[in-house]
Design a binder for these strands. Structure first.
Length: 456
RNA sequence: GUCCCCAUCGUCUAGAGGUUAGGACUCAGGCCUUUCAAGCCUGUAACACGGGUUCGAUUCCCGUUGGGGACGCCA
């Protein structure tokens, strides 16, 4: 699911929730080429992941083909639509000629009054637009909008293969499903007048339309569907929390004063079309990073474990059961992680058996100079009963004092590399507590061996 | 090309005639400190341009420029 679609879905959902309405999910799959079962499954999965639920559906537009055909037939019957036998090639030729002559092209109406019948051979069906008058509406975001009917021209509503076009299908479906509010991307703003003509031809009252500005890339261009970072699934895979992605999306184009952080519930309570802006917004990955961290920090321990479990398992190569020590570790890590992937890699040292030292970290901290410090600490801890953070700290400080009154860092860094393999981790005492006595002692011994045999 | 839309820090935005133009992200510096973060403090940084209207325009109007969208027998 594209970021733009996701945000549109979010706004629609929020609007419905805020106003006590019903959210209807309809999949517009009349283009068989682009609509696959896989794409539909992905869409539903992403919606669920974001926590956006619906009250009705999913409906598939493709299943309503008979109804669409029926409506076209009745439009033909009443003369509000007509058969057109102009071929694509003829149309293209006339269009180019018109443009070359400096004119503006809309369908020239050649078949408009020709009254072609069912026996016309291969033909399309066009909607007959009023010769004059405006097709106007009051947009929920853009305000008064509209275009003269004469500028639009009679457009095709049924292809020569009998399939119906999107514009006809949406209008019929929205009418049949009793849709009262349509919130969609601003790329549809210019399509709305034609759809209004369709409502008029059907003697129906159109719903309220609100067009939300597009999401563009860093260069200001419309997000291409081919860009992998334009999809919700991409961020999900990166380990971002759905809470973060939703928060990120809702702030593109919508604001609520100075508030930056919104839970799904708050969005449902506060969302408002009045504060949707009109300018396109570009998606800023840095902001997502920040929100990612914020939401990881905010999750309850239990939820955090549930979200982390698959990422932890991937890192460890096995299921990692929840335990008090793991919860403690996750708590230490949540402040410094932007994504679940990030956090899992930081937790790696505690869930694997074989530690691999980060090359640079080992070169810098596991040097000969660390030997006496590490050895003294190892001996001292071997005789220590209390494995609490406070006693560990006392031991560290005692070793530093007796080894020439060195700074704590001189000891802490080598130990950090020894037990986590990395030069960066949570506080060293907490880290040792989480790791437990046995593994700490083993890793200290290994590091000592490394210092004596590999270090330069 | 035609029609439509948009325009406040690099980015997301607040602002709806009178503000030291606010917040957030990013960036820089500082504090804290056993590392990495987090947190706290400070700083850099914006009303595209030109005309009006007005005692007074970021705010209203017009134009210019720039950007975007739509112009399909796609959705």
């Amino acid at each position: 699911m594209h970021l733009g679609n996701a945000r549109t879905a979010l706004f629609s959902w929020a609007y419905a929730r805020r106003h006590g309405g019903q959210m209807v999910l309809r999949i517009e799959d009349t283009d068989a080429e682009r609509s696959t079962q896989a794409s539909e499954d992905a869409l539903l999965a992403e919606l669920a992941w974001l926590g956006l639920d619906w009250d009705d559906g999913p409906h598939r537009q493709s299943e309503r083909a008979p109804r669409h055909a029926e409506v076209v037939a009745s439009l033909l019957e009443t003369g509000r639509a007509y058969r057109c036998i102009c071929t694509k090639e003829e149309l293209e030729t006339r269009k180019q000629a018109t443009i070359a002559a400096g004119g503006k092209w809309t369908y020239d109406g050649l078949c408009r009054d020709a009254d072609h019948g069912e026996d016309a051979g291969e033909h399309t069906v066009r909607l007959r637009l009023p010769a004059e008058g405006a097709l106007a509406w009051d947009d929920g975001v853009f305000g008064p909008s509209g275009q003269d009917a004469a500028e639009i021209g009679d457009r095709i509503i049924r292809r020569s293969d009998g399939g119906v076009l999107y514009h006809l299908a949406v209008v019929v479906d929205d009418l049949d499903m009793g849709i009262t509010h349509v919130i969609r991307g601003a790329d549809h703003h210019a399509n709305t007048p034609f759809q209004l003509a369709l409502y008029a031809a059907l003697d129906a009252v159109p719903p309220q339309f609100a067009h939300v500005p597009l999401i563009v890339d860093a260069k200001g261009k419309k997000l291409s569907k081919r860009r992998e970072d334009a999809s919700v699934g991409h961020y999900r895979g990166e380990g971002f929390l759905p809470e973060a992605v939703l928060n990120w999306l809702v702030r593109m184009g919508w604001s609520h004063g100075d508030q930056e952080v919104f839970s799904r519930e708050e969005v449902a309570r506060l969302f408002d079309l009045d504060h949707v802006g009109r300018a396109a917004a570009s998606a800023d990955p840095d902001k997502l990073m920040h929100l990612g961290q914020h939401w990881i920090k905010s999750l309850p321990a239990e939820t955090l474990y549930e979200r982390m479990a698959p990422f932890l398992a991937a890192e460890a190569g096995r299921e990692v059961p929840r335990s008090p020590a793991l919860d403690q570790l996750l708590d230490l890590l949540r402040e410094r992680s932007h994504t679940l992937v990030d956090m899992a890699s930081r937790a790696r040292f505690a869930v694997v058996d074989e530690l691999v030292y980060d090359e640079k970290a080992a070169a810098k901290h596991l040097k000969k100079a660390a030997d006496p410090l590490l050895a003294a600490l190892h001996d001292r801890l071997a005789g220590q009963d209390d494995w609490g953070a406070d006693s560990l700290e006392a031991s560290f400080r005692a070793v530093c004092a007796e080894q020439g009154d060195v700074g704590l860092g001189k000891l802490a860094q080598p130990v950090r590399v020894a037990v986590t393999g990395s030069a960066a981790s949570p506080g060293i005492f907490e880290t040792l507590v989480v790791l437990g006595r046995e593994r700490t002692m083993a890793r200290l011994a290994e590091a000592l061996h490394y210092v004596r045999h590999h270090a330069g």
